[in-house]
Design a protein around this nucleic acid. Sequence first.
DNA 1: GTTACTCTTCGGTCCGCGCCGAAACGTCGG
DNA 2: CCGACGTTTCGGCGCGGACCGAAGAGTAAC
Lengths: 244, 244
Amino acid sequence: MSVAALAELGSLLADQSRSTLLVALMDGRAWTVTELAHHATIARSTASEHLSRLHDAGLVVVEAQGRHRYFRLADNYVAQLVETLGGVQLSTPGSRRHFSKVPPALAHARSCYDHLAGQVAVELYEGLVTSGHLMLSVDLVTITVQGRGLFQSLGVDVSMLERSGRPLVRTCLDWTERRHHLAGGLGAALFQVLIDRRWIRRGRQPRSIVITEAGNCALPRLTGSDRTREDVQNNSALAEILRT
Amino acid sequence: MSVAALAELGSLLADQSRSTLLVALMDGRAWTVTELAHHATIARSTASEHLSRLHDAGLVVVEAQGRHRYFRLADNYVAQLVETLGGVQLSTPGSRRHFSKVPPALAHARSCYDHLAGQVAVELYEGLVTSGHLMLSVDLVTITVQGRGLFQSLGVDVSMLERSGRPLVRTCLDWTERRHHLAGGLGAALFQVLIDRRWIRRGRQPRSIVITEAGNCALPRLTGSDRTREDVQNNSALAEILRT
DNA sequence: GTTACTCTTCGGTCCGCGCCGAAACGTCGG
DNA sequence: CCGACGTTTCGGCGCGGACCGAAGAGTAAC
């Protein structure tokens, strides 16, 4: 699908007069140019031009009858489209260039302070949400009963964590993935579990804190060769857990 | 229904640059002004203005982090909206010319936002229909009981998806095949499953979005040599599933 | 503090296009 | 054929807005 087509469709709807014409046609009946022009309070010639554009785009169809030309919406799909859009409440990047500077191992999995970050972390977090262990409300994430069960079974004392004063569930915008991953007390505990069970493993590098370009992630990281093997284990084991 | 709101939404989408920005955000990730500006090949200031308008309208949300400001689509509903509009086929007379220029790998399999597209996707979708996992009514596609079983067995939580607010089953007109493929929440979930199970695999290219001549497809794509092998696996495995 | 970086705001230019009225085209009735 | 009427095409006007570069505000690292 096409950006150009999207923009074109948008520009068709963008004009107030054209929108008025389309809405007037929403009843499914056919109307003449003059009638529609009068309804939209524009000149006949202007209405004619608008309808011509809508016709070229295939949004309306025309039926000639004598010297009249009756315009109708093309089909139900267009009507549905207009209805959908009308219901909205409004209140290539070719250029990942500086991304190439991020070592793949780093993008794949790393630590962010005391929790896991990177592709693995993002997938993990989203997996926890879609599997119903975490629940997403407006702008708040909470742990579900099911999630409590999961973490308890992993040896995490959730209620203990809750009393620690630190927020249990937090999300953190992942620096490389641009999506959220799990942070907070639960994120830290989970990271510990993953390490303890050897599903992931710290990299060979000294635990130095490297400040990246974006400046916001600390990363004793997973090493290249180990990473792959460890992550496969990680994925399958976690997948199994999430399936519970 | 408000004509004014319709026109305003249209005018937001009408501009090619804004459409490009929105489409770039369709992957659900968050991007900075600079990145988006570069992707749309416009000045940072221009991109900033566009994003500001989109933000005012509530189509995108912004998250400040240090000196960066990350923009994301506001919610799934917006994504659905863009997807719906993008699925409209406008009958632009001159637009069938550049078919031969589509790279074969691209026509064969590619991603379309967050779901699979291309020949493989079209066959897959039609397979799901003929095998009774999806049901086709007048202008509506729904999942059958049998289909629920299939997706559950693939690890997709269908009922969870249904509650997410995003339409579960959508179809999207395939840009190269001119037939429908599966989109919506189910399409996205299926795509994820295919990747997780390594039945398909992202291309070796950096995950850049390449704009084709027709200007219309985002494509972290399957590479040539790998593609074939991976797709064969894909097909047989899927065929087996569909036979169930 | 300084330097470097990102992002927004502000002038100013320029193109697109929505608008109208006049004229041309087509169809119907007399 | 001729006038009446519905519609489309054309020329020209004027506004809105997309665009950029420069300047200003805010943040991060040294």
